[in-house]
Simulated scan of single mutants.
Amino acid sequence: MKVTIAYIEEPPFGWTEADHTATGADIDLANEVLRAIGVTQIEHRLTTFSELLPGVAAGHWDMNVPLFVTPERANLVAFSVPVWAMGDGFLVRAGNPKALDSYASCAQRDDARVGIIAGQVQHDSAKASGVSDDQIVIFEQQADAIEAVRSGVIDAYASTALGNRILANRIGSSMLEAVEHRPGANDRPLKPPPGAFSFSRENSDLLNAVNAQLRLYLGSPDHRARMAKFGLTGNEIDPALAC
Rank of each mutant, 00 (worst) to 15 (best):
I5V: 13
I5C: 06
A6L: 02
A6Q: 05
A6M: 04
Y7H: 09
Y7N: 05
E9L: 02
P12H: 05
F13G: 10
G14E: 11
T16W: 01
E17W: 00
A18L: 12
A18R: 11
D19W: 03
H20P: 01
A22G: 08
T23N: 13
T23S: 14
G24N: 13
A25I: 10
D26H: 10
I27N: 05
D28V: 14
D28Y: 05
A30P: 02
N31K: 09
N31T: 15
E32C: 03
R35W: 01
A36F: 00
A36Q: 00
G38I: 05
G38L: 05
T40H: 01
Q41I: 00
Q41E: 13
Q41H: 04
Q41R: 06
Q41M: 03
I42V: 08
L46R: 12
L46W: 05
L46T: 08
L46N: 08
L46G: 04
F49E: 12
F49K: 05
P54Q: 07
G55W: 04
V56Y: 00
V56H: 01
A58H: 08
A58N: 12
G59A: 13
G59C: 08
H60A: 15
H60S: 15
D62P: 01
D62W: 02
M63D: 03
M63Q: 03
M63L: 04
M63N: 03
N64Y: 03
N64A: 14
V65D: 04
P66G: 09
L67G: 08
L67R: 10
F68L: 15
V69I: 15
T70R: 07
P71Y: 06
P71L: 12
P71V: 13
P71C: 13
E72D: 15
R73P: 06
A74Q: 14
N75A: 15
N75C: 15
L76C: 09
L76H: 10
V77Q: 02
V77G: 03
A78S: 14
A78R: 05
S80E: 06
S80F: 03
S80H: 04
V81A: 09
V81W: 01
W84P: 02
M86N: 11
G87N: 15
D88K: 07
G89M: 12
F90S: 08
R93I: 14
A94G: 04
A94Y: 03
G95S: 14
